[in-house]
């Protein structure tokens, strides 16, 4: 079957088998390998992308289900024009929120969605929001700090971007 979807604002299309998982569509058909996978049971969240604005686990979503919809991946986090990092990305760097980098794209997609809904989450809220994204390196501490960093730098950065 042929599917067409917007990925990070760009129209993509491919002839696929119906059973193709969205994570494979993104990595193989769209060539966007920033989205990783780490399990088969929708537990780890490494494959988290946005589908129509909400984070989903792309290992447990068929590409066919995203046909005609909009997907956003880690490659779509930074400003498409200037290339400036999203505050979440900057926060992960500033607070050492990543080590091996494997869970990071999914973790950041979850974080960005959280901040879009709740611009000033406290630590408990952040911990709950990222509880479906496993990280084996950081013990989560610096991820929580990174998201707090992004929360406290959203306004500043958006002003800088608009200026």
């Amino acid at each position: 079957m042929r599917v067409t979807m917007k990925v990070n604002g760009q129209e993509t299309t491919a002839e696929i088998e119906p059973r193709l998982l969205l994570v494979h569509y993104l990595r193989e058909s769209a060539g966007l390998t920033g989205t990783h996978w780490g399990c088969d049971t929708s537990n780890c969240g490494a494959c988290t992308v946005w589908l129509d604005g909400a984070p989903v686990k792309s290992c447990t979503t068929l590409a066919a289900m995203a046909d005609g919809h909009e997907v956003r991946t880690v490659e779509g986090l930074a400003d498409p024009v200037t290339g400036d990092l999203d505050p979440v990305q900057q926060g992960f760097m500033e607070e050492h929120g990543l080590q091996c980098g494997f869970c990071t794209p999914g973790m950041m997609m979850t974080a960005r969605a959280l901040l879009d809904r709740n611009p000033d989450p406290d630590e408990d809220t952040i911990r709950e929001a990222i509880s479906g994204n496993l990280c084996r390196c950081t013990g989560y501490e610096n991820i929580v700090r990174a998201i707090r960093w992004a929360a406290t730098h959203q306004t500043v950065d958006s002003q800088e971007v608009s200026a």
Binding site: S42, G45, L51, A54, P55, V56, K57, T60, E128, S131
Partner: peptide
Amino acid sequence: IADPIVRNR
């Protein structure tokens, strides 16, 4: 139930 991302779907 599961986790926040699974609950989105």
